Simulated scan of single mutants.
Amino acid sequence: MTAPRDPFFPADRSIRASGAPLEIRHLGRMDYQEAWDYQAALAKQRAAEEVSDVILVVEHPNIYTAGKRTLESDMPDNGLPVITVDRGGRITWHGEGQLVVYPIIKLAEPVDVVDYVRRLEEAIIQAVRELGVTTAGRVDGRSGVWVPHTTVAADPAAPKRDRKLGALGIRITRGVTMHGLALNCNNTLEYYGHIVACGIDDADVTTLSLELGRDVTLEEAEVPLLRALDDALAGRLIVADHTFASAPDPGKQAAEARRKARAAHE
């Protein structure tokens, strides 16, 4: 995803309202709803200046979560529960072997949502390249971090099309961020086969383990990811153009599908 305009702040300036160090809280494996409620409580406290910026690190039991733009045709066919959430985007899966990071931070004014998303992407790109996926980058029109189909994964079982390695879904209320990013480490891809993940049916999903041909644990991926995230938010890691392809925006596709559905019922 390339920015439609220059960011509000210089690239080397922090996007955070606070200069205090980030607090990292490891939640272990936690039920999605429980983690969401915890996020919401923290975000309310952060908006009231009762706590400082917090980064939550968590792994969820298998669950689907449906963002605001999810269509009925995206929904799972395997009976796994779906939680409707207040983030952007469409449906995705969370589960064992996936590293999930929720930044609960107050953004500097004026709030720049696009720049925040791009900084999250930059952090993931930096981390996965450090781990060995050196061709990871962006697809213009789609959020997240991708590996191009021209890259041959170390594991022959890996998908062959452009494939998503890291996903984003955010919400910003009163200048405070919620939700965040998910990085596939050593999870199965089975659950993705029962949904139209992120509303995208012309590309695939992958994991660090498949790309590198070895087991990559959450603990191994967490270290470079948290370091890069801190650097990106602070402006020490500069957002660069890592775009290697362009594709239709699934959010716009969902909006158009809803418009047509409403028109058909009028």
Rank of each mutant, 00 (worst) to 15 (best):
A3H: 13
S209P: 03
T2P: 00
L226F: 08
V139Q: 04
F244K: 09
P4T: 12
D231R: 14
G67A: 07
E266K: 11
T217G: 09
G88Y: 06
R46E: 10
R118I: 02
S18G: 02
K68F: 08
V51N: 10
E59H: 07
L22E: 09
L226E: 09
V205D: 01
D12V: 06
M1A: 14
V176P: 01
V139M: 09
R161F: 00
H242W: 13
G235S: 10
V133N: 03
G166L: 08
L27Q: 11
R262W: 11
D31L: 07
V114T: 14
A228Y: 03
A3N: 11
L42H: 07
L131T: 05
I170A: 12
N62C: 04
G166W: 04
A264N: 10
R171N: 13
E121Q: 15
D31Y: 07
A167T: 13
E109W: 09
M30R: 14
E220R: 06
D112R: 06
G95L: 06
W93C: 01
L229Q: 08
F9Q: 11
A154Q: 08
W93I: 01
F244D: 01
A41M: 11
A20D: 15
G97Y: 04
L56I: 06
D140Y: 08
N78R: 11
P148S: 02
R29G: 00
K44L: 13
D77R: 12
L183G: 05
N186V: 00
G235T: 07
D31E: 14
A245W: 05
A11W: 11
R25N: 04
A264V: 01
R259V: 03
K260P: 00
P159R: 05
A17N: 08
L99Y: 01
M30T: 15
D12R: 12
L80H: 10
G79R: 10
A157Y: 00
A43L: 04
L42I: 04
G193L: 02
L226R: 07
D230E: 15
L27K: 05
G132R: 03
G199N: 07
G89C: 08
L233I: 14
K252F: 03
S246P: 00
A127W: 01
L27M: 13
K106H: 07
P81F: 11
T65V: 11
T217S: 15
A153F: 01
A43S: 14
L181T: 12
L225N: 06
V239R: 05
K260V: 14
P159C: 08
A254G: 07
L226K: 06
K164M: 10
T243Y: 06
